[in-house]
Nucleic acid binder design. Structure first.
Length: 153
DNA sequence: GCCAACGTTGGC
DNA sequence: GCCAACGTTGGC
């Protein structure tokens, strides 16, 4: 079982939206490194749902992979913000499907994650808090997964 | 709104 | 293949 962290701007799509719907496609990823991680995901893998670019930044809960990578329909949808002209010839962008698992009672704020990392060596290599990292889909090691869950109230 | 950092584009 | 210019991400 592998673990992941996926970012979303809650104004666009929040964990509350996912909780309401139960499951949803994770689509619109337009970065090759992030895309490659999507392709590695297996059914039943768990992922943190991270709220970015908003008032309360941090990990809002957990979701679970229900479908492995398939061609992202938004890439060939001319009405979508995520439409990609080149994908009409070859669509190399992918989406996965995610199901809601847990919404944390209290969001684990980015500031607290950074504080935890200061005193917990398990979080040394957390990509999320690496300087300059903007990756929106990233792997989380078992140790990191445990350490972050330990920090949840 | 600002800005640091990264990614992409396109001229050469 | 280099690199400047531009666009985007995302924290603050």
């Amino acid at each position: 079982m592998a673990y992941w962290l996926l970012k979303s701007e809650p104004d666009e799509f929040s964990i509350y939206d996912l909780e309401k719907k139960g499951h949803a496609p994770w689509d619109g990823i337009r970065n090759h490194q992030a895309k490659n991680f999507l392709k590695e995901m297996k059914v039943d893998d768990l992922a943190f749902f991270y709220h970015s670019s908003c008032k309360n930044i941090g990990i809002a809960g957990i979701m679970q992979v229900t479908k492995t990578a398939y061609p992202d329909p938004l890439a060939v949808d001319k009405s979508s913000d995520y439409f990609d002209e080149k994908s009409l010839i070859e669509n190399k962008w992918v989406a996965v499907n995610m199901a809601h698992h847990t919404t944390f009672k209290t969001l684990l704020p980015l500031a607290k994650i950074k504080k935890l990392a200061d005193s917990d060596s398990r979080l040394n290599d957390l990509i999320l808090i690496k300087k300059g990292s903007r990756l929106s889909v990233m792997p989380i090691s078992t140790e990191q997964w445990q350490a972050l869950n330990d920090g949840v109230c």
